[in-house]
Write a protein that binds this DNA or RNA. Structure first.
Length: 399
DNA sequence: TGTGGGCTAGTCCATTTGGA
DNA sequence: TCCAAATGGACTAGCCCACA
């Protein structure tokens, strides 16, 4: 079923209506996003500025040591919901007066973290001076016995980004991308390399240096963000890019990495077209959609660059399962962990502000069942591509 | 072909450690 | 004893590769 063949109002009418609303809202938000109690947006700081910040920080440590004081390193606490507030237009952002944790040189339990922080700062300083990039993985393997685990490097890099109030890539430290993008999109990478996503039937790996891409061109009317790679591949096999043309499709393969989130954000900023999320009707699917749409606690200091508040949840909604009479055998009973996860989600500030999403979680809780997107395939082959998504788009059935 | 291990992300909770 | 900070572990999503 081709998109254009839908009867009644034009297939893209609802999307175009949504586009108009979102663009108008975006203008208003840009104007009103001045002042307030929250941290200003995390700046895309230039290389010389970051070098200066590191030098200034080290100078401060040396001055204190010269005064026979043991200098602490202060980090904003990225692990507390008390330190963040939710605002509809920005998502989960860090408070100006967020509590800080101190890494102390005179506390034995802090010494390792102190040393790791200084070592990563030294590495970042070198990368910045040489104007080259490295990955967190490379840094870890640079001295495995010293760091101990990858997690420690990850946390330290994010703490430093937060401390200097700069995005991670401004430290010239990147993470390997895991997301894919396909459809009506072309751009140039930071080195000038031209990328045309529509020329590759399976899409391309999202670049590691998303901030460096430019000349973004697309005539797409919407961006479809898919939770799982399996579903993404299935939709490509079902020829979704032709059936719903023109469209861009992205997957972060589960919880999205920062590069995938950055790309979705950049596409929204450049193209200003609706971003639709297609996730499982289970607690993790909802949480993944929320990470794209509202941001995460640990990256709250960079919310402005990462969250896509205009995103809409197109499916699979827990209420869809009942409406479509999905066979109960295709549904999965909620486990105790699922129920706990739903409780945590219901406590999140952004869900408290979105009654319709809260309602969907309560539907899941009340029915006691969850379902993956594959459950829709049980109705008929190609149901997701040929019926579910076209009808949802045509009738604007998203929240 | 299926399974397990190691890797990429992300989240939250529990435990350990040690200073006040 | 209490509390803050650090760390490990358990869980989610997924991919790739080696091996039985």
């Amino acid at each position: 079923m081709a998109a254009a063949k839908c009867e009644g109002n034009s297939f893209w009418d609802e999307i175009e209506h949504l586009t108009t609303i979102l663009r108008r809202e975006n203008r208003t938000k840009q104007i009103s996003r001045l002042g307030g109690e929250r941290n200003p947006p995390c700046k895309d700081t230039s290389r010389p500025e970051v070098i200066k910040k590191i030098e200034f920080f080290i100078e401060g440590l040396l001055i204190k040591l010269g005064q026979n004081n043991l200098p602490d390193i202060q980090f904003k606490n990225r692990c507390s919901w008390a330190n963040v507030t939710f605002e509809e237009d920005v998502g989960v952002g860090m408070n100006k007066n967020a509590s800080e944790t101190s890494v102390k040189l005179n506390a034995s339990y802090s010494v390792q973290k102190y040393a790791i922080t200084l070592k990563i700062l030294r590495i970042a300083y070198g990368l910045l001076q040489e104007n080259v990039y490295s990955t967190k993985r490379d840094i870890f393997y640079n001295d495995v016995p010293f760091f101990g685990s990858q997690t420690i490097v990850d946390r330290a890099v994010d703490d430093i980004s937060c401390m200097f109030d700069v995005p991670r890539h401004s430290l010239h430290i990147l993470a390997c991308s895991k997301g894919y993008v396909s459809g009506q999109l072309s751009f140039r990478e930071h080195d000038g390399n031209f990328i045309n996503c529509s020329g590759n039937p399976n899409g391309i790996v999202i670049p590691s240096h998303v901030h460096g891409i430019y000349d973004i061109c697309s005539d797409a009317k919407a961006i479809l963000v898919v939770e799982k790679d399996a579903t993404y591949q299935r939709l490509l096999d079902d020829n979704i890019l032709e059936k719903l043309k023109p469209i861009i499709m992205i997957t972060g393969k589960g919880f999205p990495d920062l590069n995938t989130r950055l790309l979705v954000k950049r596409l929204w900023e450049n193209l200003e077209i609706p971003v639709l999320a297609l996730v499982d009707a289970d607690p993790h699917g909802v949480e993944i959609m929320c990470v794209y749409r509202f941001g995460s606690m640990s990256q709250s200091y960079d919310a402005d660059n990462l969250t896509v508040s205009c995103m809409r949840w197109i499916g699979v909604l827990p209420s869809d399962l009942e409406r479509l009479s999905i066979d109960q055998e295709a549904q999965i009973p909620l486990t105790e962990q699922d129920r706990r996860k739903i409780s945590y989600l219901l406590d999140r500030p952004y869900l408290k502000a979105h009654g319709s999403m809260q309602q969907e979680l309560l539907v899941m809780l009340n029915t006691g069942y969850k379902a993956e997107m594959q459950a829709l395939s049980g109705i008929s082959t190609g149901f997701l591509t040929d019926v579910f998504l076209p009808i949802k788009i045509k009738h604007g059935k998203w929240i």
